[in-house]
Write a protein that binds this DNA or RNA. Structure first.
Length: 114
DNA sequence: CAAGTGACAAAAG
DNA sequence: CCTTTTGCCACTT
């Protein structure tokens, strides 16, 4: 099992209507600290069935350059799944964050809103 | 080997 | 919220 394959599997495991981050994907693939590998794998991927649009930056923003084709494509695909996207940002928290918040309490002191 | 680059991340202010 | 600063990894030059 190659690292890339494990990343792809982790991405495919994200349910529709939910989002995750590059870091989360890598962690769930058993490759902690390798968010950039996850990003690279997605950027090179060709599989049209891969739900790449469910992967965002850790802060909930779309990673692609604003206004680019992929950016628009991702926003549209997410909205089509019922995910609210505002100014390139997804307000819906990832499952990870929901669990962490329940265990460790509310988000950081600042208004980061990841 | 050194430096640059990118669909990253966390902390600090 | 935003930006800057560090740290990181996986190439590429």
């Amino acid at each position: 099992m190659t690292d890339e394959a494990r990343i792809l599997a982790a991405v495919r495991a994200i349910p529709a209507g939910q989002v995750s981050s590059y870091g989360d994907v890598a962690r769930r693939a058993g490759l902690p600290g390798r968010a950039r590998l996850a990003a690279r794998v997605l950027s090179h991927n060709s599989d049209p069935l891969l739900p790449w649009h469910r992967v965002l930056r850790a802060d909930g923003r779309i990673a692609l350059p604003e206004g680019s084709r992929g950016y628009r494509e991702q926003s549209q695909r997410l909205r089509a799944e019922g995910v609210q996207v505002t100014r390139g940002r997804v307000s819906m928290p990832s499952r990870e964050q929901l669990l962490d918040a329940q265990i460790w309490g509310p988000a950081p002191a600042n208004g980061k809103r990841r």
